[in-house]
Structure formats: structure tokens, C-alpha cells
Computed example of a mutant assay.
Amino acid sequence: MNFSSALGPAPPPSPGYDQDFLLWLEDTAAKLKARDFEHLDLEALIEEVGSLGRSQRRELSSRLTRLLEHLLKRLYVTSPQDDRGWEQTIRHQRLELRLLLEDSPSLKGLWVDRLGKAWTEALALVRQDYPDTPFPDEWPFEADLEAMLDRPFWQTPP
């Protein structure tokens, strides 16, 4: 007697991490829920969990850079027709930063370090786009989390 046929059809092989990421995630979640630890692809799971933290830190830096870039444009570039668009981008980045920090409050501890790097990147970008505009070498306002996420700096010049 063929035992494999007596047990029914064999389950389909687990999707490979590199073959179909979404399917691998769903399969891994199902195995974790079922406590089927024996069949987990532990190496891929460890790699993916580690990358989640890197991804959030990268998102914090990216959003801060974009926020500072548009704050600089709104504050120093004379282009009234663009002010509304820059303010919309500022509001959007602030909202996304709030949501990110709400989901991962530990990112607040990286604020000062990431803000300094984001400032350098944002300043380089706007100086390249607007070479005739005099931008400050240092951020002239308070740089604490609350101010950066709430204050309309362009309404009260430095």
C-alpha cells in the first residue's frame, strides 16, 4: 500500500522567500499561528524581522528630509504660486511622521540624529534646485519633535 496516497494529496510546497514574498509572508504567518515552528524558514524570517527596523529608520529619515526640503522652500524661495503645494507636502509629511512615531515610539529616540542627517540632505537638494536662493547653513528654528510636527515656521520668520 502507498502510504502517501492513503494520507491524501501532499500539501503544496511552501513558497520560497525569493519566489513570492507576499505568499511567503502569508504562509509564515499561518505557520506561526498554528505554532508549526518546525516548518518555518527561520533564516528568512530572521532576515525579514531585522529589515523591518531598518525600514522604519529609513522611512523616518526620508520623511524628515522631505519635510525639511519643503519647509526650506516655503521659507526661503519666493514663489507664491508654489506656497500652497509646499504647505500641502509639509502637512502630509507631518501626518506620516506622526503615524510612524505612533506605531513605533522608539523612533523618537533617533529624532535628533536623523534630523541632523536629514537637514544636510535637504539643504543639498534645495541648494541644487535653487542655486540663487540664500539658504541658512543651520536650521534657524527650534528642532524639537513638537515644533517640527506642528509649527507653521513661515508665519513667524527667524
Score class of each variant (00 low, 15 high):
6 A>N: 11
7 L>S: 05
7 L>K: 12
8 G>S: 00
8 G>W: 02
11 P>A: 15
13 P>A: 15
13 P>D: 09
14 S>D: 09
16 G>E: 09
19 Q>F: 06
19 Q>R: 08
20 D>H: 08
21 F>G: 00
23 L>M: 10
23 L>I: 07
27 D>N: 15
29 A>H: 14
32 L>A: 07
33 K>T: 14
33 K>S: 15
35 R>N: 07
36 D>S: 13
36 D>T: 00
38 E>H: 14
38 E>A: 15
39 H>K: 11
41 D>R: 01
42 L>V: 12
42 L>D: 07
43 E>T: 08
45 L>M: 02
45 L>P: 01
46 I>T: 08
46 I>H: 04
46 I>L: 13
46 I>R: 10
50 G>C: 10
50 G>F: 01
52 L>S: 07
55 S>G: 14
55 S>N: 11
57 R>P: 04
58 R>G: 06
64 L>C: 00
65 T>Q: 14
65 T>L: 03
67 L>H: 05
68 L>F: 05
69 E>R: 14
69 E>M: 04
71 L>D: 03
71 L>V: 11
73 K>E: 12
73 K>V: 04
75 L>K: 08
77 V>A: 06
78 T>A: 14
82 D>P: 00
82 D>K: 14
82 D>R: 13
83 D>L: 09
84 R>I: 08
87 E>M: 09
88 Q>M: 13
88 Q>T: 15
88 Q>R: 12
89 T>W: 05
90 I>V: 12
90 I>R: 05
91 R>E: 11
91 R>W: 13
91 R>L: 12
93 Q>P: 01
96 E>L: 09
97 L>C: 05
98 R>T: 07
102 E>K: 13
102 E>H: 12
103 D>N: 12
106 S>A: 09
107 L>I: 03
109 G>S: 10
109 G>H: 08
109 G>E: 13
110 L>P: 05
111 W>M: 08
111 W>N: 04
111 W>L: 02
115 L>W: 09
115 L>K: 03
118 A>W: 00
118 A>N: 00
120 T>D: 10
122 A>M: 02
123 L>M: 08
124 A>I: 03
125 L>T: 10
126 V>L: 02
128 Q>V: 06
129 D>Y: 03
130 Y>V: 13
130 Y>M: 11
132 D>A: 13
133 T>N: 07
134 P>C: 06
134 P>W: 10
135 F>W: 06
136 P>Q: 04
137 D>G: 13
138 E>M: 06
139 W>T: 05
139 W>K: 01
140 P>K: 01
143 A>P: 00
143 A>K: 10
146 E>R: 13
